[in-house]
Simulated assay, not measured.
Amino acid sequence: MGSSYHQFCPVAKAMELLDERWTLLIVRELVTGSQHFNQLRRGLPRMSPALLSRRLHQLARAGVVERRTEDGHVRYVLTEAGRELRPVVEALGAWGTRWIGELGDEDLDPKLLLWDMHRNVDHAAVPAGRTVIYFRFPGAPAGLRDWWLTITGGDADVCDADPGHPVDVTVTAGLRALVDVWRGELTWDDTLRTGEVRLAGPEPLRRALPTWFTLPPFAAIPRPAHRLPARP
């Protein structure tokens, strides 16, 4: 746990645990359904495994997370205290959506984008059988430009190497443009019309692809006319 603020205020006492770097983002991942270490790593791709392990230990010691071992696999599950943080995470996300509009290039992470997209697939809308979507981000750094999303039945998997299956639809996009679609700043139609996102494949699949994903709840939050200025 971080150093004490030495205040009896309950906000101060809560922040002694939660304001350490990455801690609340780990809670975000647990709230959205991640339970295994590798799942948490994929939702927090820029966090080192050692620090993730340390933060999980701190959360478990504080009674926010319970570490369970079942059939040789470790799961991290929110306790009652941890589950009560869901509205806190949701409120912070809503506030950030409304008031923090500026994204730097360093904030644009294709790993996180594809991971979030994979857990928001509308499986009822995707064709039966296996569907493979190839995402190309030509402007992204080398090694982060090519991604494959394989959807089979009720499952979806993200790969950064060709899984070897035929591709049904190719999405070629500016990373910022697709992130803006995902955040609700732009629509699929906006970016398709400008060419910032391009789809290749059979026409019925191209037309249907935007319906295969359910945008995160934050995307629908109304934005004020004027947002907070970008940080220097």
Rank of each mutant, 00 (worst) to 15 (best):
S3F: 11
S4R: 10
A12N: 05
M15R: 14
L18H: 09
E20I: 03
T23L: 12
T23G: 13
L25M: 10
L40K: 01
R42N: 12
G43S: 09
L44V: 00
P45E: 01
R46A: 13
R46N: 12
L51D: 10
S53G: 13
L56A: 01
L56F: 09
L59D: 00
A60N: 09
R61D: 14
E66F: 09
R68Q: 15
E70V: 11
G72D: 06
L85V: 04
D109M: 09
P110Y: 02
L114V: 04
D116A: 13
M117H: 04
H118F: 06
H118C: 14
R119P: 00
N120M: 03
G129E: 07
G129V: 04
R130L: 12
V132Q: 05
I133N: 05
F137L: 02
F137S: 02
P141G: 06
A142E: 15
W147I: 00
D155L: 08
D157M: 10
T170V: 12
A173R: 04
A177R: 09
V181M: 12
W182E: 03
R183M: 14
G184N: 03
G184R: 10
L186R: 15
D189I: 08
D190T: 11
G195Y: 11
V197I: 13
R207H: 05
L209K: 01
W212Q: 02
W212N: 02
L215V: 07
P217C: 02
R223T: 10
R231A: 14
P232C: 09
